[in-house]
């Protein structure tokens, strides 16, 4: 059965999570800056032997079907793009968290990583096709991290999935966050935000983690990014890539139309692209050993 988490316990849970590697942390900060260049990313990767090896392995995996093997890290990063490099780096140092079985949501191990990857791809597609003035690569990274709080509270929700579904269905407004709060005292966005602070993530990523279900509450300057991930998350859930019991049990904030132009046809194209890209990335990132 579920068990309430105190503020102190939440801090203990957050403290028990391994810190990000220096390289991953710097990558997140550099790529969140508007004026960064690819060379900045290449320089960071070059200084991390482990990440260099993984990036080369990914780019030469079957998914990218290269004719000639890439052996230089400059070319590997250019070819993969910064978003995939960030994905490899995160999978590498937080893989255990992403891979964790979410028994509190009746979701098998790997479900969180797959949902996050789908959300990342979908958020980037929304940024690209929705006529948005935000970095598509940053939308991807934000999508990868948005649900990380579920890994922190899932164990405490174990055995109470039916209760959570019942709680959500009795409220006027569908919102699984209410069930999480009622059962364990915190919802996954609050727990994720505590981890974002401990990891010293860039503010825009922390805002996405905290407000991806209620994007109107985000700071104005970050709203476009938060709305992009809000839609990306919903698209991932609609496509069957949720994390179990909470899937689709949230409100869609229709104010997204203030930031994103999306028609039923664009949505269909986005959903199709997400499926295609997901298949490619899932298998290639698996080969890297990160994420799995």
């Amino acid at each position: 059965m579920s068990k309430k988490i105190s503020q102190e316990e939440l801090q203990k849970i957050v403290a028990s999570v391994p810190m990000l590697s220096t390289c991953a942390s710097q990558l997140l900060h550099v790529t969140a800056k508007e004026d960064h260049e690819l060379i900045d990313v290449i320089d960071l990767v070059r200084n991390d032997a482990n990440l260099t090896a993984r990036a080369l392995k990914v780019v030469n995996s079957a998914s990218f079907s290269l004719v000639n093997k890439i052996t230089s890290i400059d070319r590997a990063v250019s070819y993969l793009g910064e978003r995939i490099v960030v994905g490899v780096a995160l999978g590498d140092c937080a893989g255990k968290l992403f891979e964790k079985e979410l028994s509190g949501y009746e979701a098998k191990d790997g479900s969180l990583w797959r949902h996050d990857l789908r959300t990342a791809i979908a958020s980037r597609e929304v940024a690209l096709q929705g006529g948005m003035d935000i970095s598509p690569a940053l939308a991807f990274t934000a999508g990868l991290l948005h649900d990380i709080g579920k890994a922190l509270i899932s164990d405490y929700l174990d055995g109470s999935v039916a209760d959570a579904v019942e709680i959500v269905s009795t409220k006027n407004e569908l919102n699984y966050l209410d069930a999480e709060k009622e059962l364990v005292g915190f919802d996954h966005t609050q727990a994720g935000y505590e981890l974002a602070k401990a990891w010293q993530l860039p503010e825009e990523l922390a805002e996405v983690i905290l407000h991806h279900h209620e994007p109107s509450k985000a700071k104005d300057e970050f709203k476009p990014l938060v709305y992009a991930v809000h839609l990306g998350d919903n698209i991932a859930m609609l496509g069957g890539g949720g994390t179990g019991s909470d899937s689709m049990r949230y409100q869609l904030d229709n104010a997204y139309t203030d930031f994103i132009k999306i028609t039923p046809n664009t949505l269909a194209t986005v959903m199709l692209n997400v499926d295609i890209e997901f298949t490619k990335l899932e298998s290639s990132l698996n080969h890297s050993g990160g994420g799995n």
């Binding site: 919903n234 609609l238 689709m248 869609l252 229709n254 139309t257 028609t263 039923p264």
Partner: peptide, 16 residues
């Protein structure tokens, strides 16, 4: 054919 709560129909992909 599930849907998310959307009042302006764009996301009613399950219904479509």
């Amino acid at each position: 054919g599930a849907n998310v709560m959307d009042t302006n129909d764009t996301f009613q992909i399950g219904k479509r």
